[in-house]
């Protein structure tokens, strides 16, 4: 539980820093300009470094995990998605994994009853919450483009209007605001309430959830309750993106809290488990075709090993082989 409290304290501190700091006009440029740039640079450099570092290690063997029928005899239907035998199949398998969390969709829950008797039930909540969280995050990310570019691209407006489809409330409530709170909340409470998951959780697991929850909450507060001056925010955003930063006055501390938390998330990203975003593409059990016996896979560091040759074998066992009438190379 220490790791949970640790994460909570860190997030509270991260909220307090800009709350106090941004009241000073001198520090506003730090929070509004310097830190966002620094965060983005850290993210880009860190992300690229991590991916290159992974890519630097070769893939010596083709260790696909097959989750379906291989391609073998022509009359046996092979599973092109679960055991793909070519690149196109792999692309589709990866797409299912990345866009729909295919593997997580398989999730089951085992239950032990008297007997003993094991029962397997379907368990899709983790999959549903995971998917809901990632997609609402994506939509919210896209919606925020409007703060960085003028004119707002049509597709951004389209995403936004779809997100506000139900036209409830004023300002109109975005579906994703509700979904992200619910899904991240579920993921967080699941971690706390499921004994097994709590047992395996580190601060590194609680912290990103709390951070994202805080980001979403501050964003929602600004939109629905404590309005900030959108025009000023957009000035800051477009300035940052065009490398011509300009700090408008009177944006208010809530905005700086939101921005600072986002910067923390961005900068923290490459050093954390959030790098699964990059890693999922490189996972050798998923991104390789199950064509091992069709096409030879090269290992760049394939090395000679000490073998026991047939000649050595025959020499050692020559007498008994001869007596047993087993054919020999050397009589």
């Amino acid at each position: 539980m220490i790791s949970l409290w640790f994460s909570i304290i860190v997030v509270v501190i991260l909220i307090l820093i800009p709350t106090i700091g941004s009241s000073s006009a001198a520090l506003q440029s730090l929070f509004g300009i310097v830190i966002p740039y620094a965060a983005i640079i850290t993210f880009l450099a860190g992300f690229v470094y991590r991916v290159l570092n992974w890519a630097k290690s070769p893939v010596p063997f083709r260790i696909t995990t097959t989750c379906g029928q291989q391609k073998s005899l022509p009359w046996i239907k092979n599973s092109k998605l679960e055991a793909p035998h070519n690149a196109w199949g792999v692309v589709r398998r990866m797409a299912l994994e990345i866009f729909f969390f295919r593997s997580l969709f398989r999730n089951t829950k085992v239950e032990l009853r008297d007997g003993p008797r094991l029962v397997y039930g379907s368990s899709k909540w983790l999959w549903a919450a995971g998917l809901a969280f990632h997609y609402s995050f994506l939509v919210i990310f896209i919606r925020h483009f409007k703060y960085f570019v003028e004119p707002i691209p049509g597709w951004v407006s389209l995403v936004q209007s779809l997100d506000a489809f139900f036209q409830i409330g004023l300002p109109v409530i975005f579906l994703t605001d509700a979904v992200i709170l619910a899904s991240v909340g579920y993921l967080f409470f699941r971690r706390l309430c499921d004994d097994k998951i709590r047992y395996i959780s580190h601060a590194a697991d609680y912290f990103p959830l709390l951070l994202i929850l805080s980001i979403a909450t501050t964003g929602i507060l600004m939109r629905y309750f404590f309005k900030v001056d959108i025009v000023n925010v957009k000035q800051l955003g477009t300035g940052l993106l065009s490398f011509n930063p300009h700090l408008p006055q009177g944006i208010g501390p809530l905005f700086y809290v939101h921005l600072f938390l986002v910067c923390t998330l961005i900068a923290y990203f490459p050093f954390s488990k959030l790098m699964h975003l990059g890693g999922v593409f490189l996972s050798p059990t998923r991104n390789l075709a199950n064509n091992n016996r069709m096409k030879r896979h090269q290992n760049v560091w394939n090395f000679p090993v000490k073998m026991h040759t047939y000649d050595e074998y025959e020499e050692e066992f020559h007498k008994v082989m001869k007596a047993a009438d087993i054919p020999l190379d050397k009589e």
Binding site: S57, V59, K196, L282, T285, W301
Partner: peptide, 29 residues
């Protein structure tokens, strides 16, 4: 081994401890 096996490096780095694997192992069950 980290330098020779991408699998090892990736698998050390990307786990999010979602717990989906927890009750899939026959030894745990």
């Amino acid at each position: 081994r980290l330098n020779k096996f991408r699998s090892f490096k990736i698998f050390m780095d990307v786990c999010v401890r979602c717990g989906a694997c927890a009750d899939k192992c026959h030894y745990f069950i």
